[in-house]
């Protein structure tokens, strides 16, 4: 018995000393982002100094992703994990745990919460429970859809990357400033394009567009999903169609993974136009960068509002 204990102690000591002697040879930081929007923003900040992959595919609903072992493999070797937070990507915790990678578990320096310090919309002010559907107790988590949020989000990413590679902080800052300058330029273009429709009421399918609509002065007048994550009942749909007719709502904004047949049907009943926008970077062809993605959404929305 004593010999077994001694052997175990010796093995633990060797294991630990091997770990201390680990030297990282990779030049680039290996970063995994939970969603493609954050992948794009991390690439914008990290540039050639990072290698970024994302867990969710651009066409997937990121609310409830399955923690597949193939995702764990992506995280297994990661130096950093960029998370959306606000309860959108809680599944990433299971992925991080299954990856056996201490760099990215809760509390590790490689864990980057992109939502820190942002102005969160729709934070519940009253008692919430699941009779309200799949509500997010920390507020609406879809802030990456708002290009105005790119500044604080990229700042969080920058801080996270600089924590792991402080020698590259200046380069990350330079990349970020260049990206924000390009974004500012595009923003004035987008504002101009949607300026004529300020205040226009819009219906959404899933309640994920509020940041995007608010940024450009449009009003979210209702949603097809009566309660998040629960298919709507017929009485809600009848009420919604009447409300749309009354308020002359022209557009229903929907995400590619939503129930598009239902969106089409409601739009037809109410005499409105469905606008299926890219819910994540890369969801449609030509939306592979953050700016291209927002650009595509703004143009499609403006076209639908005409």
């Amino acid at each position: 018995m004593r010999r077994i204990l001694l052997f175990m102690l010796a093995a633990a000591a060797v294991w630990g000393s091997l770990d201390v002697s680990v030297v990282r040879a990779a030049d680039k930081l290996r970063v995994v982002a939970s969603i493609t929007d954050l992948k794009a923003l991390t690439e914008a900040v990290g540039g050639a100094l990072v290698e970024v992959d994302s867990l969710a595919r651009s066409t997937q609903n990121a609310h409830d992703l399955e923690a597949r072992p193939s995702l764990m493999i992506k995280v297994r070797r990661a130096d950093a994990l960029v998370l959306n937070g606000l309860d959108l990507d809680d599944w990433a915790d299971v992925v991080a745990q299954g990856a056996n990678n201490p760099n990215v578990i809760v509390g590790a320096p490689g864990r980057i919460d992109a939502s820190r310090g942002i102005l969160v919309l729709e934070v519940p002010r009253t008692r919430i429970d699941r009779s309200m559907g799949d509500v997010h107790p920390s507020g609406n988590p879809h802030y990456t859809l708002d290009p105005g949020m790119a500044a604080p989000v990229t700042q969080n990413i920058l801080e996270g990357l600089a924590r792991l590679a402080p020698q590259h902080r200046a380069a990350f800052e330079r990349n970020r400033q260049q990206f924000l300058a390009r974004l500012d330029e595009a923003m004035s273009r987008w504002n101009k394009l949607l300026e004529p429709y300020k205040g226009a009421p819009v219906i959404v399918n899933h309640n994920m567009w509020v940041y995007f609509l608010t940024r450009f002065g449009l009003t979210q007048a209702g949603s097809i999903e009566e309660r998040p994550g629960i298919p709507p009942g017929p009485s809600h749909l009848v009420k919604l169609v009447n409300q749309m007719k009354e308020n002359r709502v022209k557009v229903i904004v929907a995400e590619p993974w939503g129930d598009l047949k239902l969106v089409q049907r409601v739009a037809q009943e109410a005499g409105a136009q469905p606008a299926v926008l890219a819910s994540s970077v890369g969801a449609f062809k030509g939306t592979d960068t953050y700016i291209d993605w927002v650009d595509s959404n703004v143009k499609m929305l403006a076209q639908a509002l005409k």
Binding site: W15, S17, D79, N103, P109, G110, A165
Partner: peptide, 14 residues
Amino acid sequence: QAAPGSPPYTGPSP
């Protein structure tokens, strides 16, 4: 906390 110039974090030692 990573200090300037320090190597990347590799997890706590035994």
